[in-house]
């Protein structure tokens, strides 16, 4: 695994120490060391933000497909509102799905952190212990959190069960519904048409796809909240890491 080695050497090379002053009244200077590790590579970051835009587009357009806007006045030939909304939904769906396939590819060729999203180490005892610790931290039972270069166990579990499972479900049901419009013989119908009888009929797939949207919305709400909270309260950077790729640690203490 040369990638891991590369990543490790990058960690070492990147151990730059920077000093920061916590307060500037001179007398009470607290010196913090911030050590940086390169965690998220450029394609992964790009994928993250492309997915963000797609999910926003998909939720808004999807909602208006289920509950359309008030009727347009005038001639039908003057408007194409539902057409454009559906186009936005299908285009964003395609981009999301292709980006997700790219993301799976990156799990193979990217650094070790690129695999965290898909492989939850439930076979490791340490992982379970840390999951418990993280849970206690979230229930305000632990005073200090642990340091993590990648995801903390709870974050990893949530990302997998909410995001990975949710997105795969939405891609499959989404293309099954898309295949209804493109018709028998189209690639979407050939690949995903089996979903429709599996769930009963077309309307059931619509209902599940709709519930899936709310599953994703709940994920996004929690994800954004936890990211902001961890950025403030944990011992490492979160939001800036997904922008620049570098994980910054706020202290030098072990774990």
């Amino acid at each position: 695994m040369s990638d891991t080695q590369v990543a490790e050497t990058r960690v070492k090379a990147a151990e730059l120490a920077s000093t920061a002053t916590a307060s500037d009244d001179g007398e009470q200077q607290i010196v913090r060391r911030q050590t940086a590790v390169y965690v998220y590579e450029a394609p992964l970051r790009l994928w993250h933000w492309v997915t963000v835009l797609c999910i926003i587009t998909l939720c808004v357009s999807g909602y208006f497909i289920g509950s359309p806007l008030p009727t347009m006045p005038g001639e039908a030939s003057d408007h194409f509102l539902m057409g454009y909304i559906r186009f936005a939904h299908f285009a964003a769906g395609y981009i999301l799905a292709i980006a997700f396939v790219g993301r799976i590819y990156w799990a193979f060729v990217g650094n070790s952190h690129a695999r965290e999203l898909f492989i939850v180490p439930i076979h490791k005892k340490k992982w379970w212990a840390e999951l418990l610790h993280e849970l206690r931290w979230y229930l305000f039972l632990e005073k200090t959190p642990k340091k993590y270069i990648g995801h903390n166990p709870m974050g990893q579990l949530a990302m997998f069960s909410f995001f990975v499972i949710g997105i795969i479900f939405m891609i499959i049901t989404g293309f099954a519904l898309y295949g209804e419009g493109t018709g028998a013989g189209s690639w979407a119908n050939n690949w995903f048409g089996w979903v429709i009888p599996l769930m009963g009929q077309s309307q059931d797939v619509h209902t599940w796809h709709h519930l899936g949207m709310w599953y994703i919305i709940i994920f996004v709400m929690s994800h954004v909240y936890v990211a902001v909270r961890e950025d403030i309260m944990s011992r490492q950077s979160l939001i800036s890491t997904m922008v620049g790729g570098w994980r910054m640690f706020k202290d030098d203490k072990p774990d």
Partner: peptide, 20 residues
């Protein structure tokens, strides 16, 4: 689906606010 979704999202939102 929308009524269920709104209710659950509202619950999660309230939980987030309390936790925050």
């Amino acid at each position: 689906a929308d009524e269920i979704g709104t209710a659950v999202a509202g619950g999660v939102g309230a939980a987030i606010a309390a936790h925050a």
